[in-house]
């Protein structure tokens, strides 16, 4: 890929797309001018010109694959032979799969909770200081970078050298300077999961912080001042007024991060590739897509397990939007 072909590619791609809309609308305009009597009829066509590309893509890239994935989970590895629930029975007994489920549950428990907690604390602190905006900017920054990039950043922090050598990983340097033995953090089961989760928390705290920060501004100032005049401590104000006030925001943040965590993939692939008991569903699925020539049955099954985790949130979302629509 050279720079010239980059420009050509970009031009070709976007021009095709733009031309479709422009030409189809011109044709429609031309046709409706010719027979003005049928103007209303032609106008009926226009919405379909507007929505056609999006709907076609939606069907090909989302709706059909979702149904097909459900179907494939009842078929064998090549997808041609119906095997009923065989894949599901296999999964229940597979130790790797069990490990992945357990780890995903751990991630679901720890990451949204701590991200939301740190986000709230930071938003609350930052809104009261003159340099709070700068602080928020810095804490938000990891949101902009890729999970793989974040993986490299933290792999460097967790780097391990044998005892006696100079540690170049920050964490081990701290540990050694406190007089302990350096550890190969990524290879200690259970703990290594926590160190991987820390990366995700590091990234997602910024998101929680921004959303909380917006919500905190909605709290009536009079209420807080009244509490202060009555002599309530900052801690008391935080727990008794602010947290109950933010209940809905907390729920929103929690669902957003939950969805992200269910699909967690890049960090695991880059850091451990599921070794040392760090396997998660999305990584296991990626593995099964190609392991032994690929097993679409087992791969699909894992996608469905992730999907099942998302469904309650999906239903809640749709309900919320139906209510929004009415009001």
């Amino acid at each position: 890929m050279t720079i010239t072909s980059l420009f050509l590619y970009v031009f070709f791609g976007t021009a095709t797309c733009f031309l479709y809309f422009h030409l189809s609308n011109l044709v429609l305009d031309f046709a409706s001018k010719k027979n003005t009597k049928k103007f209303s009829q032609k106008s009926v066509l226009r919405p379909y010109i507007f929505i056609a590309p999006a709907v076609i893509i939606l069907v090909i890239f989302i709706l059909y694959p979702v149904i097909e994935t459900i179907r494939l989970s009842f078929f064998n590895k090549t997808g041609f032979e119906f095997v009923g629930l065989k894949n599901y029975f296999w999964a229940v007994k597979d130790p790797e799969f069990k490990r992945a489920i357990l780890n995903n549950l751990g991630w679901l428990l720890v990451v949204p909770t701590l991200s939301a907690f740190f986000g709230l604390v930071i938003a609350y602190l930052a809104d009261r200081l003159w340099w709070g905006t700068i602080a928020k900017s810095i804490i938000f920054m990891p949101m902009a970078i890729s999970f793989v990039g974040a993986g490299v950043i933290w792999k460097f922090v967790y780097d391990y050298r044998g005892p006696g050598d100079d540690q170049i990983g920050f964490l081990n340097a701290v540990v050694v300077s406190l007089g302990f033995e350096p550890q190969a953090w990524m290879t200690i089961p259970i703990w290594n999961n926590l160190f991987l989760m820390a990366i995700m928390i590091w990234i997602q705290t910024g998101l929680a912080m921004v959303i909380f920060s917006a919500a905190l501004r909605g709290i009536p100032k009079e209420m807080l001042e009244a509490a202060r005049i009555d002599g309530a401590s900052e801690f008391k104000i935080f727990t008794a007024i602010i947290i109950p006030y933010l209940e809905k925001t907390i729920l929103v943040i929690w669902t957003i991060i939950t969805i992200l965590v269910l699909k967690i993939f890049d960090i695991i692939l880059a850091m451990t590739n599921g070794q040392w008991n760090t396997e998660v569903l999305a990584n296991l699925m990626y593995d099964w897509m190609f392991r032994g020539g690929g097993d679409s049955g087992r791969g699909s099954l894992m996608a469905i397990v992730i999907m099942i985790g998302v469904i309650p949130i999906m239903i809640w979302n749709i309900k919320r939007h139906k209510e929004d629509q009415k009001s």
Binding site: I51, V55, L58, F61, I62, L63, Y64, P65, V66, E68, T69, L72, I259, L262, K263, A282, M285, M289, S296, G299, S300, M302, A303, I304, I306, M307, V310, I313, M314, N317, I318, H321, K322
Partner: peptide, 19 residues
């Protein structure tokens, strides 16, 4: 159609990959 869009918002990418 809009309801489908709202539902699709949270569909994990993984559901679409194999097909």
């Amino acid at each position: 159609l809009f309801a489908i869009i709202v539902a699709s918002l949270v569909v994990p990418l993984q559901m679409c990959l194999i097909p």
